[in-house]
């Protein structure tokens, strides 16, 4: 049964499948990098929605209004993971740019290391 709370997980599955499809079938290097980033966002969404509690407040103990809090650990994880993701994507884009300068093509099927 799909309730409101399980919607984010459905979105996660759709995003992961989309990014995998892009990685498998797209030839353009930039599109593959985009797919990696989409997958990273999907995993981040997964982590965030794991920690969500309905009607929860931000997990800050001082001056808290009381009641349910969302879990703090996934938020810390997601923050770290976002930063790492940015670094990875930036590095990949720089490789793609340098590769384009050397080879003059963005096509992954024109790769030369094989065998």
């Amino acid at each position: 049964m799909v309730t409101m709370l399980s919607l984010p997980f459905v979105a996660v599955v759709i995003l992961v499948c989309m990014s995998l499809a892009a990685m498998l079938f797209k030839r353009n290097m930039i599109k593959i990098v985009m797919a990696v980033h989409v997958m990273g966002s999907a995993v981040n969404l997964f982590l965030i929605s794991l920690g969500y509690r309905e009607g929860g407040v931000a997990p800050i103990f001082t001056n808290s209004p009381g009641g349910v809090m969302v879990l703090p650990a996934p938020q810390a994880l997601t923050l770290t993971s976002i930063v790492i993701n940015i670094a990875v994507v930036a590095l990949m884009l720089s490789f793609a740019v340098s590769l384009y300068r050397r080879y003059g093509t963005m096509d992954t099927r024109k790769m030369r290391l094989k065998g």
Partner: peptide, 9 residues
Amino acid sequence: FEAAFKYMI
């Protein structure tokens, strides 16, 4: 760069 790109992906 090609090897690095593949590795990073």
